[in-house]
C-alpha cells in the first residue's frame, strides 16, 4: 500500500514536471505573439500565429505526455487524492518563473507556496491512512 502510494506520487510529480515545461513554453510563446486580442477574429489570428511557433508544439507534446501520465495515475488513485497532490506544479512554476523567466516572485508568494507544500504533505498522509 505504501509503495503503491509512492508510485502514484511519483507519477504525479512527473505529470507536474511535464505540465511546468508546457506552461513555460506557453508563456514564452505568449510573450512572442504581439496581437491585441479583442473579438473572435483576433482570437483565431492569435491562435494561428501561436501555433506557427515550434515551441508551441513542444508545449503541446508535453501537455499530451502529462495527460496520459495523469490518466494512468487516476487508474491507481482517487481524484480527491491525486488532484491536490498535483498542486505541486505551483511550486515548480514559482521556481521556474523566478529562475527561468526571471519574473519577480514576492515573499508572500513564496510563503503561500510553502503553505501549498504543507497541504500536499497532509493530503499524501491521508492517502497513507486510507
Amino acid at each position: 500500500m505504501t509503495s503503491q502510494l509512492a508510485f502514484v506520487v511519483g507519477l504525479i510529480v512527473l505529470t507536474s514536471v511535464c505540465d511546468t515545461v508546457n506552461h513555460l513554453g506557453l508563456k514564452v510563446c505568449a510573450n512572442a505573439v504581439d496581437i491585441e486580442v479583442a473579438g473572435l477574429r483576433s482570437v483565431a489570428r492569435y491562435a494561428l500565429r501561436f501555433l506557427r511557433l515550434p515551441l508551441a508544439w513542444v508545449s503541446i507534446f508535453f501537455a499530451l505526455l502529462s495527460l496520459f501520465l495523469w490518466l494512468y495515475a487516476l487508474t491507481k488513485a482517487d481524484l480527491s487524492l491525486a488532484f491536490p497532490i498535483d498542486s505541486m506544479h505551483h511550486v515548480f512554476i514559482a521556481l521556474a518563473s523566478r529562475f527561468l523567466l526571471r519574473e519577480f516572485v514576492s515573499w508572500q508568494r513564496w510563503l503561500g507556496t510553502g503553505c501549498i507544500m504543507a497541504g500536499i504533505v497532509l493530503v499524501t498522509m491521508s492517502g497513507l491512512a486510507a
Partner: peptide, 15 residues
C-alpha cells in the same frame, strides 16, 4: 485529514 490538506492548499493560494 484530506480536507485539512486541501484547506491548507487553499490558504496558500489566498496568501
Amino acid at each position: 485529514l484530506r480536507w485539512s490538506g486541501i484547506a491548507l492548499i487553499l490558504i496558500g493560494v489566498a496568501i
